[in-house]
Write a protein that binds this DNA or RNA. Structure first.
Lengths: 200, 200
DNA sequence: CAATTATTGGAGCAAGCACTCCACGAACGC
DNA sequence: GCGTTCGTGGAGTGCTTGCTCCAATAATTG
């Protein structure tokens, strides 16, 4: 009778994260289509039955990874409220991209995702992530403009696009360029962003 | 007896280009794996037999497109020999990226390629293209440094990487960002590159 | 016109894939 | 212990895909 064996949310979350981690690794090194579910399962050390017990679809795994990234972004943004130096905040946000890129899997994952952008679900998730990130940036850019710390000859939205250009390009370079390391170029990234924000 | 029906190189080249053009289109809008050979054939208005008569493999088509791009790069470089204003040349080269991006298929194709970088053959071809492009840029950067037009606080190779960062990021933004058009942002790209080269 | 060969379309095939299904074992309430 | 449900692995399946094969056609020479 009795309702035996209730779900253990912690155990479930842990397994989920384990699969997510494996997915991140394999997506990064093989691309989306190159990452077969079989390989992801092997990387995670599980059977395919388990995989589809946690994710209905391979695409769902990708989406879950993206969602995790978006969460981190919003958390990071929340931790910055109350600051009064918009330029400093913006540069920290830019620098955090370099820090993310220090995990070698991140750049690879980013290009893997870019390669599946034509899938509507992925495009939507990525758009949401992009919008969240842009929202944060724009708010600080506007404050900086009001402040006099940021150039006012360009609208805030356009400045945000250019910050994104810098960080996207940075990730791409780290992925491709042998001599271009996240740690080594971090400082120059910040300096370049500062120069741009001031209106060099 | 008689050797009838000799190959017509022009006809062959034309067909080849027709397929290449279709491939560029479909790769750009569907990604590499999303671009089925069937769809490429439909786009080109040919049967699959014809396709494989011209390209042994789907990957070969991708490689052919890349090779065409490399050729254009080297041709463009050759046309610049003899100039004495390194900074001007560099900015023209950067601007030509923006011009390429005006063809909406180019940014899409670039990310499609990025999504298959884990294939050794593609990685190799892309490395060759990258090396060719870098070689040209580095030569002009070095001349600019000797000239006093380009900053000397960074080694030429590193400056080249950062120029590539700008152009890569530019292509990515054009592909993703609704409000970010190649024509509209071209000028700012050149200005930003100039600022960076001078050492802002 | 005949002979010969490049060129073409499309039917079909083998392989690989995401995903389903099921049976067994473990964990819990009673 | 017993009953019940969750968690798990892996064999199997149906579909898609890159690619092959071949018969028909077009083009060119003599």
């Amino acid at each position: 009778m009795a309702v035996a064996r209730p779900v253990d949310p912690e155990r479930r979350a842990a397994r989920r994260l384990q699969i997510i981690d494996a997915g991140l690794t394999v997506f990064a090194e093989r691309g989306y289509d190159g990452a077969t579910t079989a390989r992801i399962c092997r990387q995670a050390g599980i059977g395919s039955g388990t995989f589809f017990h946690y994710f209905a679809t391979k695409a769902d795994l990708l989406l879950a990874i993206l969602e995790l990234g978006t969460e981190e972004t919003t958390e990071r943004a929340a931790g910055l409220e109350g600051r009064t130096d918009p330029l400093g905040v913006l540069l920290e946000l830019v620098a955090s991209t370099a820090d993310d890129a220090a995990d070698a899997r991140v750049p690879g994952f980013v290009r893997a995702v870019a390669g599946v952008m034509h899938e509507p679900a992925v495009a939507e998730a990525l758009a949401a992530d992009d919008a969240a990130q842009r929202d944060v940036l724009r708010r600080w850019v506007e404050r900086g403009q009001a402040n006099g710390e940021v150039r006012t000859d360009l609208p805030a939205a356009r400045i945000v696009s250019w910050l994104a250009l810098l960080t996207d390009g940075f990730l791409e370079r780290v992925a491709v360029d042998e001599g271009f390391t996240a740690e080594g170029e971090r400082e120059l990234l910040v300096a370049t962003a500062r120069s741009f924000l001031r209106g060099g």
